[in-house]
């Protein structure tokens, strides 16, 4: 279906979006992208555009919802916010991610 990124990366991006929305409240796409860049300290070479398929995916799952609003610069923009399901999923996804990260860490640790 035209998805050519690995599932891990996809899941990672999804979780970043969720955490961003959790921390910042309702936010437009540009805001989400900027926030992810800032938090990752530009360590992630991410095309800002790629967050839109991620936003759509989360929306289709019903984890986030969108509505039109007005930005701080008085520009009409679509604002995303966490849904009830999304809030519940964050914990689950976080745990998932930590397990994977932990496993990876063990692989990457210098073997004695």
């Amino acid at each position: 279906m035209g998805e050519n990124k690995s599932d891990v990366l996809q899941g990672t991006l999804d979780l970043m979006v969720l955490k961003t929305l959790e921390a910042m409240g309702p936010l437009h796409g540009y805001g989400v992208a900027r926030r992810i860049e800032q938090v990752s300290d530009n360590g992630l070479s991410l095309n800002q555009g790629t967050i839109y398929p991620a936003l759509l995916r989360l929306q289709q799952r019903g984890w986030i919802q969108a509505e039109w609003g007005v930005s701080e610069t008085n520009r009409r923009a679509k604002f995303y916010s966490l849904s009830r399901i999304g809030r519940k999923k964050i914990a689950e996804e976080t745990e998932n991610w930590e397990r994977i990260a932990g496993t990876m860490a063990r692989f990457l640790a210098p073997s004695s």
Partner: peptide, 27 residues
């Protein structure tokens, strides 16, 4: 949700267009 996406393509395309333009404008 994908099934809904089969209908009203023009409006959805317009929405996407508008959203992406907003992104660029904000940037």
């Amino acid at each position: 949700s994908r099934f809904r996406g089969l209908f009203g393509k023009r409006k959805l395309d317009g929405d996407l267009e508008e959203e992406l333009r907003a992104h660029i404008d904000l940037a």
